[in-house]
Simulated assay, not measured.
Amino acid sequence: MNEFLKSTWSVIKQFSIVAFAPVILIAYFSSQQKEEDIEKNKSITYGIVTRSTPLVKKFSKRIYHYKFNVNGKTYSGSSSGWISDNINYGNYYPVEFSTKNPEHSRINFEIEYSYVVGTTESGKMDTIYIPKSEIKIKISEEDKERIEKLRLSVETKN
């Protein structure tokens, strides 16, 4: 019996590539079809990063999961990224998706966005996404004076 198991395992090892090749090919072509669908029917929205999981333990590559809305319906996706890219939960990024099948999507981690809720000229509420690097903080004159006093007190101590 032990000899039978050894010979069976030997056969499995020899033909494992043949067994897994169709799975790898199907995954590859499925991925290519998804990318083509996004390119042909592309639209852009913004998604929020909801969580991440390590790709491989002790490495800085992670899978980031995100959600986005299209026509009132929520979709989710995932994409890989590096920890050094400062991708955190709750951050917003542009998501490219297929208008024919919004489940085909990809997120772009290059520029982080923040959302601002405002009122349009017609009086309707609307959400606008602005790159975080372009957000300007308004500081009151009172706060400017307090900051200046703190700066002066730090300079005099040094």
Rank of each mutant, 00 (worst) to 15 (best):
M1H: 09
E3K: 08
L5D: 13
K6S: 02
K6E: 11
T8A: 11
T8I: 15
S10W: 00
S10C: 00
S10G: 12
V11W: 06
I12Q: 03
F15M: 00
S16T: 05
I17E: 14
V18N: 05
V18S: 01
A19C: 08
F20V: 06
F20D: 04
P22H: 08
V23D: 03
I24N: 00
I24H: 00
L25D: 01
I26P: 01
A27Y: 08
K34E: 09
K34T: 11
D37W: 02
D37V: 01
I38D: 02
I38E: 03
E39P: 00
E39Q: 13
E39R: 15
K40P: 00
S43C: 06
T45Q: 03
Y46D: 02
Y46P: 01
G47P: 03
I48A: 06
I48W: 08
V49I: 11
S52R: 08
T53R: 05
P54Q: 04
P54R: 10
L55E: 07
V56N: 03
V56S: 06
V56E: 10
K57E: 09
K58I: 00
K61G: 03
R62L: 06
I63S: 05
Y66R: 06
F68G: 09
N69Q: 10
N69H: 03
V70K: 09
V70D: 09
V70Y: 12
K73P: 00
T74G: 01
Y75Q: 09
Y75N: 07
S76T: 14
G77N: 06
S80I: 10
S80Y: 09
W82L: 14
W82G: 04
I83T: 12
I83Q: 09
I83N: 05
D85Q: 14
D85M: 07
N86W: 02
N88C: 07
Y89Q: 15
G90F: 10
Y93G: 09
Y93P: 08
V95R: 04
V95N: 06
E96V: 02
F97E: 04
F97N: 03
S98L: 10
T99E: 15
T99C: 11
T99M: 15
K100M: 08
H104P: 01
S105F: 08
I107T: 04
N108A: 09
I111D: 10
E112C: 12
E112N: 14
Y115C: 11
Y115P: 05
V116A: 13
G118K: 14
K124G: 08
D126E: 13
T127N: 07
Y129D: 07
I130C: 03
P131I: 10
K132G: 11
E134D: 13
I135V: 15
K136F: 13
K136M: 11
I137S: 12
K138I: 05
I139D: 01
S140T: 15
S140C: 07
E141K: 15
K144M: 07
K144L: 13
E145T: 12
R146T: 07
R146I: 08
K149A: 15
S153Q: 14
V154H: 03
V154S: 03
V154Y: 11
T156I: 09
T156K: 15
K157W: 02
K157L: 14
N158P: 00
